[in-house]
Computed example of a mutant assay.
Amino acid sequence: MRPLRFVALGDSLTEGVGDPVGDGWRGWAALLAGGIGGGPSVKSVESVEFTNLAVSGSQTRDVLERQLPAALALRPDIASVVIGVNDTLRCTFDIQAVAARLDTVYSAFTEQGAVLLTACLPDPGAMLGLPGALARPLARRQRAVNAVVHALSERYGAVHLHAAEEAWLTDRAMWSADRLHPGERGHRQLAVRFHALLAEQGLATGSAPSPEPEFPEPTKSASLWWLATAGTGWVARRCTDLLPQLMTLAVDEMRHRVRGTSARLDLRTAHAVSAALAALSAGEQQPDAA
Rank of each mutant, 00 (worst) to 15 (best):
L13G: 06
G27R: 08
G37P: 12
K43M: 08
V48L: 08
V55I: 04
T60V: 04
R61N: 04
L64C: 07
R66F: 07
R75Y: 09
G84P: 06
V85H: 05
F93W: 13
D103N: 14
T104H: 09
F109S: 10
E111V: 13
A119D: 01
D123Y: 03
L128T: 06
A133H: 01
A133Y: 02
P137N: 12
R141T: 02
V149N: 05
H150W: 14
H160F: 08
L161Q: 08
L161M: 03
L161P: 11
A167T: 09
A167I: 06
G186R: 09
F194V: 01
A196N: 06
A199G: 04
G206S: 02
A208M: 00
S210A: 06
E214T: 00
P216D: 07
P216R: 05
E217V: 14
P218N: 15
A222D: 15
A228Y: 12
T229P: 00
L242M: 11
L242E: 09
L242W: 11
V251G: 02
E253P: 11
G260T: 12
S262M: 08
R264N: 13
A270M: 01
A270V: 02
S274M: 12
A276M: 10
Q285M: 11
Q286T: 15
Q286F: 09
P287I: 10
A290S: 06
